[in-house]
Simulated scan of single mutants.
Amino acid sequence: MTILAAIGITVATFAFMEFWAWFMHKFVQHGPLWFLHRSHHVRHPHPVERNDLFFLIYGGISAALFITGENGAHWWYWVGVGIAAYGTVYFFVHDVLIHGRLRFWKKSQNTYLRALNMAHKTHHKTTGRDGSAEFGLLWVSPKYFELARKQAESRKNKITSTDLSR
């Protein structure tokens, strides 16, 4: 396997995982596996929730692909790398940045991260399995970018007007 092919498979898998995560979230987690995902939509004092089982499922798939892929000799090893990379990004973006499950990240002023957070908050407006919107993770609807940009401009204008009044 060439390095270019390995990189291509890894990047393609990572990109596919965004679609797969959206599909699974919308039609499976908010469908037949709601009994696991529900824990993510309700407040609770526990550091772990049933929804975390999805990390174990995808981690297990990725590990199986690593183990049987003979250190990159087979193409599916690189699929496992793409799944693991997406899972890592998912953990940091979703669990650390958005939900603050590890409290070492402060609020960001980055327009993309703020738009992502707004979209996710829209998803969590409903606590039931029906009526949610915005099921993806990394792809954000342009309307949230516009809202985040307007918020940043508004904040900037407030700071400027406060500075001028001193």
Score class of each variant (00 low, 15 high):
149 R>C: 01
146 E>K: 14
164 L>P: 05
109 Q>Y: 03
156 K>G: 02
88 T>R: 11
58 Y>W: 15
83 I>Q: 07
114 R>W: 00
143 K>E: 12
12 A>H: 06
130 D>F: 11
141 S>W: 13
28 V>G: 00
113 L>T: 00
146 E>A: 12
151 Q>P: 04
67 I>D: 07
113 L>I: 01
109 Q>V: 05
64 A>M: 11
98 I>T: 10
124 H>T: 04
35 F>Q: 09
46 H>T: 07
146 E>C: 03
16 F>W: 10
33 L>Y: 04
103 R>Q: 14
96 V>G: 00
155 R>L: 07
61 I>E: 00
137 L>A: 09
140 V>S: 01
68 T>F: 14
103 R>H: 13
47 P>I: 09
98 I>H: 11
92 F>K: 02
112 Y>K: 05
69 G>K: 02
135 F>L: 03
105 W>Q: 03
108 S>K: 09
84 A>V: 02
92 F>M: 05
12 A>W: 04
135 F>P: 01
2 T>H: 14
43 R>K: 13
33 L>R: 06
104 F>E: 05
30 H>L: 12
58 Y>N: 08
51 N>L: 02
147 L>K: 09
100 G>V: 04
108 S>H: 09
49 E>K: 10
129 R>H: 10
105 W>R: 03
58 Y>H: 12
11 V>E: 01
25 H>I: 03
89 V>L: 07
84 A>D: 03
102 L>P: 01
134 E>L: 01
128 G>R: 15
104 F>A: 05
78 W>Y: 06
131 G>H: 06
13 T>R: 04
106 K>Y: 01
27 F>I: 02
108 S>F: 08
78 W>C: 10
77 Y>T: 08
131 G>L: 09
53 L>K: 01
104 F>P: 00
84 A>Q: 03
19 F>S: 07
51 N>E: 09
138 L>Y: 01
95 D>Q: 10
92 F>A: 03
133 A>E: 15
155 R>Y: 05
85 A>H: 09
144 Y>M: 05
17 M>H: 11
155 R>F: 06
46 H>V: 00
68 T>L: 14
147 L>M: 13
134 E>A: 05
125 K>Y: 08
164 L>M: 14
62 S>A: 15
69 G>E: 01
91 F>W: 14
65 L>Y: 00
5 A>V: 13
102 L>Q: 07
122 T>W: 04
82 G>Q: 03
15 A>Q: 09
111 T>I: 14
41 H>K: 10
135 F>Y: 14
128 G>S: 15
100 G>S: 12
67 I>N: 02
